[in-house]
Simulated scan of single mutants.
Amino acid sequence: MFAIVGVYNSQNDRIWAANYDEADAKGGIKQIQEFPQKVMVWLGICSKWISPLVIFEGGTVYHVRYIKEVLPVVLKFGNGIFGNDRMFQQDGAKPHTHKKTQDWYRDHFPGSIDKDHWPPNSPDLNLLHYCIWDKYARAINWDLVTSKKTLINQLECAVKKIPEQILFESCSSWTSRLYRLKGSHGNYLNK
């Protein structure tokens, strides 16, 4: 989720501090607009490719919208890069785990990891969470973001600035992260 006041991710952004003053000193307390204009984005990556950006300007992303707006993008560009030699993995978001979405996966991505075989909430194993979103947000020229229209423009420009080397490195580190996560007994990894 991106807003004209910056990146919004209440689930992943945390500041560990003993009190509010310490959190503020570490950059944790921010004053923002009560209801800033915002958009949700979807992005797919692999070691060789970054998908076109799918922007959701309004409303909730539920399974029907996800199937209609995101999955055709994945299918088109995934087939173009890998043909049938590919695997598609999602996280535990409701649009991803819905029965109709799972049926769509099985029909179009026979080698996909289904919802019962992927950790439902594992940012340590999601390439976008542990590497790409931060690089993407830093590529946005926030000084130019003054409205929803300029935010969308900057989101579209920033996706083109993510270096291929970052994609390759983040994908290459996945297997070692999997083993580190197993060794941590499910605790979060320190980068």
Rank of each mutant, 00 (worst) to 15 (best):
T97P: 02
N126D: 05
E156R: 11
A139E: 07
L75D: 14
G58L: 00
V74E: 03
N79F: 02
P163L: 02
W49M: 04
F56E: 01
P119E: 14
Y66F: 13
F82L: 14
D91C: 04
L128R: 09
T101I: 09
K100E: 08
M87V: 11
I132D: 07
E156V: 13
Q90N: 12
I67L: 06
G111D: 14
A158N: 02
H98E: 05
S147N: 12
I140F: 01
H96P: 13
D91P: 14
L127S: 10
V54H: 09
K94V: 00
W133M: 10
N141G: 13
D85T: 14
R86H: 15
P52D: 11
I50C: 10
I132H: 00
I81Q: 15
Q102D: 05
N126Q: 08
T150S: 02
F109W: 09
L155S: 00
Q154W: 05
F56Q: 03
P95N: 00
G80A: 13
N84T: 03
H129Y: 11
H96D: 13
E57V: 15
Q102K: 10
I140Y: 01
K161I: 06
D134K: 08
Q102P: 04
L144W: 02
K100C: 03
H96E: 14
Y136T: 01
F77A: 05
W118K: 09
H63Q: 00
H129V: 03
E156D: 14
I140A: 08
V64N: 06
Q90S: 07
F82P: 14
M87P: 06
G80V: 08
I50P: 07
F82W: 12
G58I: 03
E69R: 06
A137L: 10
G58C: 03
I55F: 05
W118E: 08
L71F: 01
Y66Q: 09
K148W: 04
S122D: 15
F82G: 12
W49H: 14
V70R: 06
S112I: 11
K160G: 13
I162H: 09
P52R: 01
L151M: 06
H129L: 11
H98F: 09
G92W: 03
D114C: 08
D143M: 07
R65D: 01
I113C: 11
E69D: 13
I140T: 02
K100F: 10
Q90F: 05
I113R: 01
H96N: 15
L155E: 10
A139K: 04
T60A: 00
N153V: 06
E57T: 15
I55M: 07
I81S: 15
D103S: 15
Q154Y: 03
W49K: 12
C157W: 00
R86S: 12
I67D: 11
V145E: 01
A93M: 14
W118V: 14
F109H: 10
T97C: 00
D124F: 01
A158L: 07
Q89D: 04
V145L: 08
Q102S: 06
A158H: 02
N126V: 00
